[in-house]
Amino acid sequence: MRNTAVITISVILGLTIWFNTALAFDIEDEKLFEAKGSARTVSIISTTDLIYFAPLIDAFQEATPNISVQYTVASSKELFKAIYDEQADYDLVISSAMDLQVKLVNDGLTQAYTSSETASMPDWAHWRNHLFAFTQEPAVLLGSKKMFAELNLPENRQDIITLLRENPDKFKGKIGTYDIRDSGAGYLFATQDARQSDVYWRLAEVIGSLNPTLYCCSSKMLAALESGDIALAYNVMGSYASAVLKDDSNGFIIPLSDYTHFMLRTALIPKQADSADLAGRFIDFLIGATGRELVQEVAGLPPIDGEALATQLHFRPINLGPELLVYLDKIKRRRFLKDWSDAMIRQ
């Protein structure tokens, strides 16, 4: 009787634990790229959609045969949870959430990797030999060709404020931007804007007064721009925009000359990785000459290019470093979101 009870309790406990571990984080997509006669598998968890990464994985498997690749897609928050809270069993973590990636490294959940490829990286593109950037993706302003047919293009954020103040009727309900409460990239861009310049809060006030639409992601903003729901989209991921926008699209990129932030998509190897060597080879592949070309050509993402950033002084890559922890601080974050909500959301 007692034994049965103990067994029952054990089973229940076991199931609970199993459920907890299995369902502790949500994944969006998953695919196994099986290599012929492969002996080993490298498992990758990433925020980048499968359509962008599948061609890269194919090219990696062509260059490095006999390695299967397990590719899992998750949102940046779920990905962080998987590694930070669950120590889930992945060999390589690829994310566009720079701050969360830095937090993983800072809190000692990753391992170092060095190779001749990593040694030749620019200083700003890696941190501690733990975190390696392989793309630089700008936050851009998008406008609708219809709307700007008869308006002057703004050249900087002050111009946007002036434009919106002078034409409130035209832009009311026609502005889109990230809902930074949901979007990691949106939060990163907004905090970097706020850090960069006081103009940001004035811009937020003006946008907030024009009843903006808030989006979860860049793709939705692009779609809304195409359909004519919005006429101006602030802080869209330029990499997606360039990939989607065609010559006959309604949306177009309005270049700003005061500053353009670049988000870095980074890779790291978790401490508990079983196949850290294979993960290292994948990193080498991504940052190597072939990888950079493929990242550009096949995945449609801008690879690391130190020269472009050096010649355009207003191009600023967000620095990989402990300062990214500041806006992850719970008090700081609560405060920032409150200020942002106060400015952006008026009922």
Partner: peptide, 11 residues
């Protein structure tokens, strides 16, 4: 309100 510079100087 932790200033950004507090950690960037360490970095």
């Amino acid at each position: 309100d932790i200033p950004y510079s507090a950690f960037s100087m360490l970095g």
